[in-house]
């Protein structure tokens, strides 16, 4: 075991006992700002959200605040808008996960092959991840998906098809496409990193033993990818549950409620209808949903810490 670092430069083993105590004190001191800030950041807003969620509190309705118990939750959870937005959230998260992983796996396998100019291809593949969400949403909406002058409409006409009016006929699908484009690089890059760490000798040994390309893939590559795929699913889910900017700049949740997800619903109740109580109740529902996912992610990451 290496001795822990002590800034007091305790180098002799003889003074290790006092050194450790000093070191621990110092270690706590160094940790304090980060832990303290994150603790406040976690506790204060959450406590306030819980508090507001029990009030009848609307910013437009003067500043009257009244304790109403769980009424806000009853109101929020039975609101048809909640059911619709929960459904939209699930469809959005599920579809983007499916698209990014189903396209990411072959793409990662392809990039793992001997490819001339691989680093350039990789730069192109990864680029969408660095584009800010408002830019990608507006570029897709106006330059590509516009029903008259968008590139997709032109391509459809080339093939004699009727152009799709994306944001009227299939608004949620349009949002799904945009978000998938942003997250495909992430899935691909993680899977590629995992593939590259796959032991080349193991694959060679399998081939020596007469395993074909297919069985090498099924029995060696796929099990090796199971963990990174799980990580991709969990991390993407955390971010996809709160997709906001893409909806905000393209559809504003509409038409109707067709592209309203839970994050957008809470936003509109809070900052458009100024219904603080109901939005807070919704916020807590979102926290609970995210926590279910986080529980599994934290376990996986924690297991890795031991290694």
């Amino acid at each position: 075991m290496a001795t822990p670092l002590s800034l007091e430069s305790v180098s002799q083993r003889g003074t290790a006992a006092t050194g450790t105590r000093q070191t621990q004190g110092l270690a706590r001191l160094l940790l304090a700002p980060a832990v303290g800030l994150l603790f406040i950041w976690m506790i204060v807003p959450l406590a306030l959200t819980i508090y507001f969620s029990t009030l009848h509190y609307n910013l437009l309705d003067s500043e009257s605040q009244q304790f109403v118990g769980l009424d806000n939750f009853r109101y929020f959870l039975t609101d048809p808008a909640f059911i619709a937005s929960l459904q939209n959230t699930l469809v959005l998260v599920g579809s983007v996960l499916a698209l990014t992983i189903l396209l990411g796996i072959p793409l990662a396998l392809l990039l793992d092959q001997p490819v001339l100019g691989r680093s350039i291809v990789r730069l192109m593949v990864i680029a969408p991840f660095f584009v800010m969400p408002t830019v990608s949403a507006l570029v897709w909406k106006n330059l590509l998906m516009h029903p008259v002058s968008g590139l997709f409409a032109w391509i459809a006409k080339l093939f004699g098809a009727t152009p799709i009016d994306w944001f009227n006929d299939a608004p949620l699908f349009a949002v799904i496409l945009i978000v998938s484009w942003q997250w495909l690089p992430f899935a691909t890059l993680i899977l590629l990193t995992a593939l590259q760490s796959l032991d080349e000798e193991q694959k060679e040994a399998a081939e020596m033993d007469g395993a074909g390309a297919l069985s090498t893939f099924i029995y060696i590559t796929v099990p090796h990818l199971a963990r990174p795929i799980t990580v991709v699913i969990l991390i993407e889910t955390i971010f996809l549950l709160t997709v906001f900017a893409e909806i905000f700049v393209t559809t504003g949740g509409g038409p109707g409620l067709q592209t309203t997800n839970i994050a957008f619903l809470i936003y509109s109740q809070a900052l458009i209808q100024y219904d603080i109580g109901s939005a807070s109740a919704g916020g807590l529902v979102a926290v609970v949903i995210a926590n279910i996912v986080a529980f599994f992610l934290v376990r996986i990451v924690g297991r890795n810490l031991e290694a």
């Binding site: 980060a34 832990v35 994150l38 950041w41 976690m42 204060v44 807003p45 959450l46 306030l48 959200t49 507001f52 955390i238 549950l241 709160t242 906001f244 839970i262 994050a263 809470i266 936003y267 809070a270 900052l271 603080i276 939005a279 807070s280 916020g283 807590l284 979102a286 926290v287 949903i289 995210a290 926590n291 996912v293 986080a294 992610l297 934290v298 990451v301």
Partner: peptide, 16 residues
């Protein structure tokens, strides 16, 4: 610390 990152921002939008 990791779990604080999991908190959806929209959950604390109102108080913030």
């Amino acid at each position: 610390m990791l779990s604080t990152k999991m908190m959806p921002p929209v959950g604390v939008l109102v108080p913030i």
